[in-house]
Nucleic acid binder design. Structure first.
Lengths: 342, 342
DNA sequence: CTTTGCTATTGACTCGAGTAGATCTGGGTG
DNA sequence: CACCCAGATCTACTCGAGTCAATAGCAAAG
């Protein structure tokens, strides 16, 4: 006679727990744990097979909350950026997510929208959620470290020049990068090079401004006009309008972010000027957008993937008691057509 | 004599728990919970003050993992997108994060990189992490719903035309949007309108292609050339090259995403053709990038913020037992210069 | 001076998984 | 045949917070 084989135990309602698996496989809950984690104790191959089977049949997935509670780690990292829809941060977030996922960490994302109160709230929120580390791209250049300190969570400050003691930080050599770009423009024969400088809340001078000035001084050239505006497309647009209207109009402009350069290009196009023929442009960041603007932008590329990896590695390292580090990465000039190269 | 007031109980090493607060305040742990949550039972004002004090002094933050374990909810939503560095998804993610944060939910982000295996892994991972809901922008047009089903997690399918029974879905009326754009191009007098169609893994025809065809048929015009390529900038670039090389070169092109249009513009510029003079362009999505391309793109705008809000609301609603819904949003034509308007 | 009827508070159990320490095997000695 | 040992497995406690049933405290009523 043909008999339907029914499992010894009914499939449980709702989420499947370790206990269900244990019952189904006819073993104790401990063995299930050992199998799932390659646990601290060995399990006989035959038993392991039974358990694996039960896991497959019941569709068991260990409860991450319980695991986090017991282990004191949520295997989660928090990322706070000013605005994920800024392509540079989007690129960076992607790289961070990749790096985190490779190490088994999930990524909780939050936007601070250039708002300090929101940034603070986000950090607190992440702290309460027991994230194992926070990556902070602050809206300030001197972020509110106190929140992170009291929360006692490993953290990495991104794009930070200041070495905050006790904190990891990751950044690029802004001055060197800017200098490289401006020197390239000088190499094209420009003697009047303007600067579209992004504004930040800090009092100290941004490295990109320093680099621009250094390059000019080093070449014995006078400083071209500077316009300060936001690090955004609209910011670059108004910067462009103002630079083009300045008494001694520059023949080349260095913009401190790709977004600004994109906005700037629009202003130049609207003015009916040719790029790079009448106005050459170079910028900073190395986002994909720079490659597809018209003309394609010569830009200082940040090694986003390496920075993201280093940032994640620093957080994971911190959990193992490693000392905070300050890492400054070198940039690379990506030459395209906006500078005058063919 | 001057005596240092020392707390009755030493500040504990490591993370502060409810127990520490209870001891410090001289109450039971239950009361602490009641105070923290405005708990199910009332607490005398004087006691509450003592507890609040202790919380402040000790810097207590409830352990989210323990909370999640007990309540079976992590107050977390998962978002799976093909690629966060695609500006459209970046914009969408930002909107989702806003909507989620407004309701007290955190957002776990993961990229599937157009890879089905990775998409599946990400969903499993989110399921294990007990997220309260998943927003899935699948790489497929017929995503792997089984994973979500067995995980038994409320979910929303994004940009999905098919009504998957038992699932929430949010999308836009692709055909209507495309038709609107193509009709606008027809209004400019174009009679040969090409299509740069993004490829997806589905077998069925994309609504945007349908809309393009409908508009042409309705106006009694012949179908212009079609080129299929990826929904990306490089994809649009090669599509542009091919369309420009086609035997009857179109005088206007509809691109099915802003990214494609950006790449297409590059191809047109490289060919030395004027936009919109010799080639008019319209596209689909309504991302910020479309506003700052040259010339600014006329594009079909998706109501991203509303869609994100609806998606999050659907997930939160699902936890309260609401039925799955299928919502299709209307698009809006954003007229700029690439179509020929001044 | 009880007793009733509150309210404020507490003890204790629960969620699901990790793991130390105890227990149970069975095979190999002496 | 009793004994030992190692490997396999199980029992039971723990993590931190939510919450119910039980209790303590106390004022008004009888």
């Amino acid at each position: 006679m043909y008999t339907m084989t029914t499992p010894a135990v009914q499939a449980p309602r709702g989420p499947v727990t370790r206990k269900d698996v244990a019952r189904y496989a006819g073993v104790s809950t401990a063995v299930v744990s050992y199998v799932v984690n390659g646990g601290p104790k060995k399990v006989a191959p035959a038993t392991e097979a039974k358990v694996q089977d039960a896991i497959r049949v019941l569709g068991y997935r260990p409860n991450a909350a319980a695991r986090a509670l017991k282990l004191g780690s949520s295997e989660t990292l928090g990322l706070v950026v000013p605005d994920i829809s800024n392509p540079f941060f989007a690129l960076f977030s992607h790289a961070v997510e990749d790096a985190a996922a490779a190490l088994g960490y999930a990524l909780v994302l939050s936007n601070s929208d250039g708002n300090l109160a929101k940034e603070r709230r986000n950090i607190r929120n992440l702290a309460a959620r027991q994230v194992d580390g926070v990556l902070l791209a602050s809206v300030l250049f001197e972020p509110d470290l106190e929140v992170l300190e009291t929360a006692d969570i490993p953290s990495v400050l991104l794009n930070q020049e200041r070495d905050a003691p006790g904190f990891n930080s990751i950044g690029v050599d802004l001055a060197a990068g800017a200098r490289m770009a401006v020197e390239h423009l000088i190499g094209h024969g420009h003697t009047n090079i303007g600067l579209a400088m992004g504004t930040n809340v800090s009092g100290s001078t941004d490295g990109r401004e320093v680099g621009w000035r250094e390059a000019l001084q080093h070449a014995g050239l006078p400083e071209g006009p500077i316009v300060y505006s936001e690090f955004t497309r609209p910011g670059g647009y108004v910067a462009g309008q103002r630079l083009l209207a300045s008494v001694n109009r520059p023949t080349a402009i260095f913009a401190t972010s790709d977004m600004q350069a994109i906005g700037l290009l629009r202003a130049v196009h609207e003015a009916g000027l040719a790029v790079p023929g009448q106005i050459a442009v170079a910028s900073f960041d190395g986002s994909v957008e720079a490659e597809y603007s018209w003309p394609p932008l010569t830009t200082v590329e940040q090694p986003v993937a390496e920075m993201a990896e280093a940032a994640v590695a620093a957080l994971v390292g911190a959990r193992r008691g490693e000392e905070p580090r300050h890492r400054i990465f070198a940039t690379k000039l990506h030459v395209r057509q906006s500078c005058g190269c063919p």
